[in-house]
Computed example of a mutant assay.
Amino acid sequence: MAQSKATSIRTAATKVAPAKAQAASTADELVSVLRDTIVSLVRRDGPDLSSRQLAVFLTCYLQEEGHTVRGLAAELNVSKPAITRALDRLGELDLARRKVDPLDRRSVLVQRTLKGAAYLKEIRSIMGEAGAAKKVEKEVRPVRAGRRAA
């Protein structure tokens, strides 16, 4: 009984190891795509957002529900003043704007802008190009390694 249990544990471990290696490889690729995207955004003419500003921007544009300063602070687990500073910068760049909620004047709604939608489209394009380049690089690497072995 103990031997069969040990065997099943070893069998399970041999199945988990490739999955962990695949997950690590995928994570490495995603981090590389993120790096390439951020480098492209920094190099081009246009807004240069901090990670907090980018997090606020992406949360507002990728999640459909209406956003408030209070809700963004809770979702991102940062203070309301930090969200306000991020929104100040996004407002300066016309990537988002704040509006008093007509139903609850104590609440401030965050609205999307046309310029913000265009910026998101640009981010998607840059990420798509970076992801495609990584995919090509991944496909070419094994071919080169195979040629060396031959």
Rank of each mutant, 00 (worst) to 15 (best):
E29S: 14
L87H: 09
T59A: 14
K135I: 11
A6K: 06
E64F: 05
A73T: 08
A6W: 02
V100Q: 14
I83Q: 10
A17P: 00
A17K: 04
L90W: 08
S32H: 13
A73I: 05
H67A: 07
R98L: 09
G146I: 01
R52S: 08
A23C: 04
S25A: 15
R70D: 04
V143H: 07
T84K: 14
A130G: 08
G71V: 01
R98E: 11
L41P: 02
L103I: 02
K15Y: 03
A133S: 09
E65R: 14
R43L: 12
A17Q: 01
V33Y: 05
M1G: 11
G131I: 01
V108E: 04
Q111D: 07
G46A: 09
R147V: 15
R112A: 12
A86T: 07
V100P: 00
L95Y: 08
A132H: 06
A132S: 04
E139M: 15
R70M: 01
A6T: 03
R106E: 05
K15M: 09
V136Q: 09
A74V: 04
R35C: 04
L109Y: 08
M1C: 06
A145M: 07
E129A: 13
D94T: 13
A27C: 06
G71E: 02
A145G: 01
E92H: 10
A118T: 09
V33M: 09
A130R: 10
D28Q: 14
S40F: 04
V31K: 07
R35E: 09
L103G: 06
P18W: 06
T84V: 15
P102K: 12
R147Y: 12
P81K: 05
V140L: 15
R147T: 14
L30S: 08
L109M: 14
G116Y: 01
R43Q: 15
R85Q: 14
A2T: 11
G131D: 01
S107F: 00
A19Q: 08
D28P: 00
Y119D: 03
G128Y: 08
V42G: 00
L120V: 11
G66D: 05
K99F: 02
R89W: 02
S125I: 12
A12T: 10
S32A: 15
E137C: 00
Q53L: 00
V140G: 01
R89N: 08
L49G: 05
Q3F: 10
D45F: 09
K134M: 12
P142T: 13
G91Q: 14
G128Q: 09
E65L: 06
L30K: 10
D101C: 13
A12P: 00
L72F: 05
L120G: 03
V100R: 15
A27N: 04
R105M: 10
R124P: 00
A118V: 13
S125N: 12
E65C: 03
A130N: 02
R43H: 12
A150I: 02
A6S: 09
